[in-house]
């Protein structure tokens, strides 16, 4: 596979925010290579820079310096239309607060990205129903987000993120607003989709339940990668970590 082995690579990623007269460095030189088909968790306390990293990888915000490569394409070199194409076809997004369009039904929400992709209406609806069935919401197609529970809304968001068959799904605190049981279900669903669809899942989280299913865990602290653990190492330490929490 060669260089195509890595679906996402970041080099010397720096992001600064200006707050009044102070400059805050949220990311301080992050180099990260993410393999195709991997389930990777970016862990760290709030304020550690994981959401900033999420936004940079997803092309939702421009880094101050450094580069992000998606499938070996330097994101900084893309114009607005190419970036939009990438967001539409290559990356799916899942957010802590679901970010569903409140006035649309579950199905309409899932079909929306297929509209932006220029898919014919019938195909889009078919795809939407297929995805909602896959996340176990086949019986809630025409419900609005307000008529759904948090876990169900996040399932709709997951279905939506996969509508255009992206190669990467980015999840920012996907279980942050959910209770323990629902959170576990969402994590398991993501893992299942990762295995069955081959989609790379990158999840920014501070939910330790994520560690169990991740192939790798990247620990972020003060805008830097503190350590990267492979699954094999994590299994040994999981008990210890729960104590620390």
């Amino acid at each position: 596979m060669g260089s195509n082995e890595y679906v996402v690579r970041t080099k010397g990623l720096i992001k600064e925010f200006t707050m009044g007269e102070e400059t805050l460095r949220a990311l301080n030189g992050v180099d990260l290579d993410i393999r195709r088909g991997e389930y990777i968790s970016i862990m760290g306390p709030s304020g550690s820079g994981k959401s900033t990293l999420f936004n940079a990888i997803g092309g939702l915000d421009k880094p101050t310096s450094g580069s992000v490569f998606i499938n070996d394409v330097d994101m900084a070199q893309l114009d607005a239309a190419e970036l939009a194409y990438l967001r539409c076809h290559t990356i799916g997004y899942i957010f802590q607060s679901y970010n569903l369009i409140p006035v649309m039904t579950a199905l309409e929400n899932v079909v929306l990205p297929t509209i932006f992709a220029g898919m014919p209406t019938d195909d889009g609806i078919e795809r939407g129903i297929e995805m909602l069935n896959k996340v176990g919401l086949g019986h809630r197609l025409h419900h609005r987000p307000t008529e759904l529970s948090g876990g169900q809304q996040q399932r709709v968001a997951i279905a939506r993120s996969l509508a255009n068959r992206p190669s990467i799904v980015l999840a920012d605190e996907p279980t942050g607003n959910l209770d323990l049981k629902t959170g576990t279900e969402i994590i398991e669903l993501l893992r299942e989709l990762n295995r069955n669809e081959g989609v790379t899942i990158i999840s920014a989280t501070h939910d330790y339940k994520m560690v169990d299913v991740s192939d790798r865990v990247v620990w972020i602290r003060d805008g830097r990668i503190a350590k990267i653990e492979e699954r094999a190492d994590i299994d040994l330490k999981i008990g210890e970590m729960n104590v620390n929490e």
């Binding site: 190419e82 290559t90 068959r165 081959g198 989609v199």
Partner: peptide, 17 residues
């Protein structure tokens, strides 16, 4: 179990939206 092969996975190329 078929790897996802899409046009946008061709390295160095991104279409326009």
């Amino acid at each position: 179990d078929q790897p996802i092969e899409q046009p946008q996975n061709v390295p160095g190329k991104v279409q326009k939206q």
